[in-house]
Design a binder for these strands. Structure first.
Lengths: 214, 214
DNA sequence: TAGATTGTTAATCGATTAACAATC
DNA sequence: TAGATTGTTAATCGATTAACAATC
């Protein structure tokens, strides 16, 4: 049982995106007091088929049983959220503030410890109780404190530089909102979130549907 | 040339997500004054292969030539951004504010005309020059004004209700940031953006990589 | 012209779906 | 026990990659 260490092939992106949805719905059903969950129930929630749920779970090594607690625990392990993650946010703009204010992260063990901004007027201030530090002190901070994930909400121009500093200081993950495609490498995992791309994808689908009607 | 109207099969999600990235990089290269773009150059930018770029373009009906202007124009048409899109944001919280402050949207013809919030204290105020209106007036507003896209930044509990009102009033797209999986249907296209899912996917990849090293 | 690049078909690869014996 | 559900293998389907003649 469990992922075979020899088998070094990463699981597919499609699956890596479905796992959080499984986890989210299992948590909801657990909170609702459900005693058991079937593959078809879960499939219905996330919008796929029971066969895919079972195949996904099989691919991930299999789970003991389908009790909500067991499922939640097993998915937590897969998602790596049995340990705490410490994060810093780069950029104290609107998006940075929005991310800091997402209280939900804490329940899954994600903690934001500091915010960095190059506007020195903000130095010493706080956002939701998180201190704002000068951008120039980032490297010192990363060297002195254990930071697992760096969240980039800066303009595109400085994103690559922040990535490099992060790697140098042993950070293992980047959650990037700047409109550049940063790449994962052997030292660090990158998750790019391109909000405007997402809006364009929506527009594309709306347009596609509209064209069919003609 | 062009998508055959008879061929009613939607293009794949993978492709629908790559198109905005092609567009983004073409715009950048155009701004940089590049005179021509090859499939391998573009592939390198977006992180795939030249064969895939050519196959994608072929699947989308093909483009006349690879001049940056031609490519940008052609991709604009595909993405449906040759026409303006009028949007309203539901929820004047931090995320709502962040989205309103993204000036970049405007350049692609996306305009935010109003923000709705159920906190009556905010009624009559503005965010970046956009008026805040009471949530109760949403349906009236949607009936009286042409709104193409509704952006949901509310708690999960009210998202479904907003979707239904939007459909009823002829809105064609939903950009949903609430942590519920809203579904597209024949009347409306939904794009779900689950930020915490995205963070969990990052955590999953970090964990996966870490396990291999053991 | 020669070299590079595209458009398009065919081959391969991987993900999803189907099937069904084993288990609950 | 009978009915439903799972775990797992096999079949199918679709997306990516390769190949190469036609074009730039």
């Amino acid at each position: 049982m469990g992922i075979n260490p020899q088998d070094k092939k990463a699981l597919s992106d499609a699956l890596a995106r479905r796992l959080p949805a499984y986890y989210r719905h299992v948590c909801i059903m657990l909170a609702e007091g459900k005693q058991t969950i079937t593959s078809s129930e879960l499939a219905k929630k996330v919008g796929n088929t029971s066969a895919q749920v079972r195949q996904d779970f099989f691919t991930c090594g299999g789970v003991e049983n389908y009790h909500p607690d067991t499922l939640k625990d097993w998915l937590s392990g897969l998602l790596g959220i049995k340990k705490e993650h410490h994060m810093v946010v780069i950029g104290a703009g609107n998006l940075g503030r929005a991310i800091i204010s997402f209280k939900d992260f804490n329940t899954d063990g994600f903690f934001i410890d500091a915010v960095f901004d190059n506007n020195l007027m903000l130095d010493g201030m706080q956002i939701c109780g998180i201190p704002i530090l000068p951008a120039t002190s980032l490297e010192d901070y990363l060297s002195a404190n254990k930071v697992d994930i760096v969240v980039i909400t800066t303009p595109a121009s400085v994103a690559e530089e922040i990535l490099e500093k992060s790697v140098k200081c042993g950070v293992k993950g980047i959650w990037n909102f700047a409109p550049v495609d940063l790449r994962s490498n052997e030292n660090i995992e990158v998750q790019n979130v391109h909000l405007s791309d997402s809006l364009l994808t929506l527009s594309f689908r709306m347009n596609e549907k509209n064209n069919w009607k003609e």
